[in-house]
């Protein structure tokens, strides 16, 4: 692992993401699921669901299980913690979480 500066990709406007839903964006060619929870919280994890290999996590339902803010995969309903990408039911199926920030009404994503 080497320490490199984050590469930020502008993916969309804040208003392009309906509160409590996600969208899929390409960041450096990689499909990333970007979620808006409530109006102001943003999260990003890999979009590919390891269990199915399908690029679908942005289309899952957002919510919380206990203290975890999660998305449920639309295919097999396994839950991923949005802050670290850990799959709650099967940690071996976890995904990478990515960085997100909002600047001037734009949403930016950086891998890692």
């Amino acid at each position: 692992m080497s320490i490199e500066p984050l590469v930020w990709t502008t993916v969309c406007a804040v208003d392009d993401i309906l509160p409590d839903t996600g969208v899929c964006a390409l960041a450096e060619g990689r499909p990333v699921a970007v979620f808006r929870v409530g109006h102001t919280q943003f999260y990003a994890i890999d979009n590919v669901d390891p269990k199915s290999g399908a690029s679908v996590l942005s289309r899952g339902l957002v919510g919380n299980l206990g203290k975890h803010v999660v998305v449920a995969s639309p295919l097999y309903k396994n839950h991923f913690d949005l802050s670290d990408g850990v799959c709650l039911e099967a940690p071996e199926h976890s995904v990478r979480a990515h960085s997100v920030r909002v600047e001037d009404g734009r949403v930016l994503v950086a891998l890692g």
């Binding site: 409590d20 929870v37 899952g60 339902l61 957002v62 919510g63 919380n64 299980l65 803010v69 999660v70 449920a72 309903k77 839950h79």
Partner: peptide, 9 residues
């Protein structure tokens, strides 16, 4: 809470 994939649908 925020709801979940059970109560929302």
């Amino acid at each position: 809470g925020l709801g979940c994939d059970i109560c929302k649908p």
